[in-house]
Design a protein around this nucleic acid. Structure first.
Lengths: 137, 137
DNA sequence: TATAAAGTTTACGTTTACGTAAAGGTGAAA
DNA sequence: TTTCACCTTTACGTAAACGTAAACTTTATA
């Protein structure tokens, strides 16, 4: 039952972020580490929340949005009807957002691939010409 | 040969953004509309760039990044070897980013779906209990 | 015991991406 | 002709997400 814990620098190293960032997330209500005296002690749950927060960032979520999702997730246990309906709405919106992002990414991937092709062929053109030039000198 | 053009408010309506935003993007070098006197005239190319800029935003690109991509795309025509190699590097990085985002989205979609399930079953629980309560009164 | 290494709080600074006036020009309709 | 509606520039304001520095405590180690 020895629950694994982490120091702030453990987490900052693992996720390649500054301790300032981690404290800031706490201040924004995203993390709630326990304390040992003054020092923050992070549980596995805190670590997961940090991961989720960072993933949220990669997906364009604001910290406030992520926090809202966390809060709702927690309050879902209480089973308030209004809350549940509200959460379902948010979930539907997020899912729509993700659908859009999927399309965006697929399109961009296609474009990046074709840009890469054009780039490579332009590059081989340049190199062919260089070679010809060297041969002629 | 009558090339279609757009006014600033045309574009602001189409994309549901303010004219301030559009002018700001121009100031950041993302758009380059021609002028008729003082008034800006947007070409189809401008419109496409605006679309791409907005998509970039949805995918977490900064305006500076998007601008860099535009600039590179344009300068690719000139076929400078260094430039081409540089662009290929950037393209590779972006593709890796997009791969990560794809994974992020797939994971989040799964989680949203399961959160929705839990939410719905919690909701039906609540309603069942309410019904029972009404019947008992 | 002193000195580094890691932790803390407080607080002002910075960048990005616009928002929000203020003050004015231009052309068409009433 | 005046009154809209739409355009312009200039410029200060702002929210989000940290960066950075100062000043201090606690713990480990030489």
């Amino acid at each position: 039952m020895k629950a694994k814990t982490y120091s702030i620098s453990d987490l900052s190293k693992e996720f390649a972020i500054t301790t300032r960032t981690i404290r800031f997330y706490e201040q924004q209500g995203l993390l709630a580490p326990s304390r040992q005296g003054q020092t923050r002690i992070y549980s596995e749950k805190d670590r997961v929340r940090l991961m989720l927060t960072l993933r949220g960032k990669r997906l364009g979520f604001s910290l406030a949005e992520t926090r809202e999702l966390f809060d709702m997730y927690d309050s879902t246990r209480e089973g308030d009807e209004k809350q549940l309906e509200y959460m379902l709405n948010i979930l539907a919106r997020k899912r729509a957002d993700m659908e859009q992002q999927l399309k965006d990414i697929e399109n961009l991937q296609r474009e990046l691939a074709s840009a890469e092709e054009r780039c490579l062929s332009a590059l081989s053109e340049v190199r062919k010409r260089e070679k010809a030039q060297r041969a002629a000198s």
